[in-house]
């Protein structure tokens, strides 16, 4: 793929990627209760490898989204540890938390672009964690950041739309902008929360290919929440199945059988085509 090659060339900086293990995420006894006594995550412990794509599957409301959001602390866990790059993310506060967040890119189901800003400015929003507020106010983005943003847009085929407003783009284009914004952070981990659920099947595959390329060529581990079991099996190197706030399957896609799917989703009528 041409996109793959271009993404490699447009690396934000040449950070050493020799050893992938520093980027692994170790989650220990993670528990989240939105209401006391009603855990959404029931003491989840899992280690996510520092490379490749990990897919989390499971029915709606089973805690997939909560798990992923605990990692970058959009959701505060009730108890447990999240060890990443030598820190426990679960305990960070203030500036430390922001510094940790900027190392973790996030891709959303509804893209979550700032609609009235241009495409290029949405990409540059990925650099906000590195900038003083008055530079943000004056739009003083560094030349390197701007150059990098244009390269990324070229790489995903949106180069000629840089100055157009984000809300005039199609779903697939917006999601590519969302992914580019995450890459602009120069992240050590990418979290994707249902990145394909609002897209048509063809575009979904293209978006998964883009994420797969990132994981492979840049050595950034990608964690994807996904509804579509087929896409998960096709692109992920490892599938984690969740049900009722706990992990019930963990293994390579080839090991995922119907009996596991029945355990994850319940029932079995839906499996018979």
């Amino acid at each position: 793929m041409t996109i793959a090659g271009a993404l490699v060339r447009s690396t934000v900086d040449s950070r050493a990627q020799a050893d992938a293990s520093p980027r692994e995420v170790v989650i220990k006894n993670l528990r989240k209760e939105y209401r006391a006594g009603q855990p959404v995550l029931r003491d989840v412990s899992v280690t996510i490898a520092g490379k490749g794509m990990t897919a989390i599957i499971g029915p709606s409301g089973t805690g997939k989204s909560t798990l992923i959001r605990c990692i970058n602390r959009l959701v505060d866990p009730t108890s447990g540890q999240i060890l990443f790059m030598g820190r426990d993310l679960a305990t960070l506060k203030g500036a430390d938390l922001r510094a940790a967040r900027r190392m973790i890119g996030m891709v959303f189901q509804e893209y979550n672009l700032v609609e009235r800003l241009s495409v290029i400015e949405n990409l540059l929003c990925g650099r906000l964690g590195y900038m003083r507020w008055w530079k943000v106010f004056l739009r003083r983005f560094s030349e390197a950041d701007v150059a990098c943003a244009f390269e990324l847009l070229d790489a995903v085929g949106l180069g000629d739309m840089a100055t157009r407003r984000a809300d005039a783009r199609s779903g697939g284009q917006r999601q590519r902008v969302g992914i580019c914004r995450a890459i602009m952070q120069n992240p050590d981990l990418i979290l994707a929360d249902e990145p394909t659920s609002s897209l048509d099947p063809k575009t979904s595959v293209e978006i998964m290919e883009l994420l797969e390329t990132l994981a492979a060529e840049r050595g950034i581990p990608v964690v994807v929440n996904i509804h579509n079991v087929e896409l998960a099996k096709r692109f992920a190197e490892r599938v984690i199945g969740m049900s009722k706030g706990a992990i019930v399957f963990d293994g390579p896609p080839s090991a995922l059988e119907d009996r596991h799917l029945i355990e994850i989703y319940g029932g079995k009528d839906w499996l018979e085509a």
Binding site: R98, A99, G105, L113, V114, R181
Partner: peptide, 23 residues
Amino acid sequence: GPIEALTAAGASPMAILIKGYWP
């Protein structure tokens, strides 16, 4: 949504105000 995205990118509250809320 956009506010959440900028928070996830590690933006400071002031930066979120300028780039997330103001537009």
